[in-house]
Design a protein around this nucleic acid. Sequence first.
DNA 1: CCGAATCCCTGGTGATACTG
DNA 2: CAGTATCACCAGGGATTCGG
Lengths: 119, 119
Amino acid sequence: MSSGHVGNEPCSAVSTLQVLSGKWKWLILYHLFQHPSLRFSELMRKIPGITQRVLTKQLRELEEEGIVERTVYPEVPPRVEYAITAYGQSLRPILDMMHAWGLEHLRRKTERATHPSER
Amino acid sequence: MSSGHVGNEPCSAVSTLQVLSGKWKWLILYHLFQHPSLRFSELMRKIPGITQRVLTKQLRELEEEGIVERTVYPEVPPRVEYAITAYGQSLRPILDMMHAWGLEHLRRKTERATHPSER
DNA sequence: CCGAATCCCTGGTGATACTG
DNA sequence: CAGTATCACCAGGGATTCGG
């Protein structure tokens, strides 16, 4: 366990990050937030750089936590769609705030690079 | 660069997580949010499990991003204090939301463990 | 007390190939 | 199309030691 214990952690934010730990999870949510549902292949295309293996794994973990829902349509060829659950929706405000903060942060860094003179 | 490019990233939240990437960074902020400033050794005690090397590194990175401020008092023995900058304060709402979400999530899991019958 | 310098090690990720 | 199965990798951390 080492440091994975988040039982009586004074900072519960850590457990949030624990649940959302994974290089692409927030990006996956980002895309699922703007579409009712997405097929596996659609997610692949929307997330350049991710591999099948990793996308599968992170989706499974999100499903495990009840954040996304996986629907398999018994067709041929196979079709699997992923969607945000009602519970997952509760993460949206957080993502939005991080989105805004990230934007502002990038702007800030750009400024510092543009006006390197003033310290 | 592989996948580290966050320039024209459609999801700027990723860059936020990029900046705050580090096992203990949010926890460090958590403590700095409830104290005007903390000494290095105080942070060490408040964060069981972290090592000097790692605490130093993550603090330096936070300082680099303008999120925390490092003040060295030229005394003997040395005293170094860390404090949140005005800019760093802008992260507080995000941390608060993650804190709330994490708490709720833990409660949810506890419930599922308590009533394992109902699916 | 605070932190730099070394060495080491693990787990999350990437690459590739194969299947129903 | 939507995965599983293997193997390999390396950056982020961890343990320890030394220094001002």
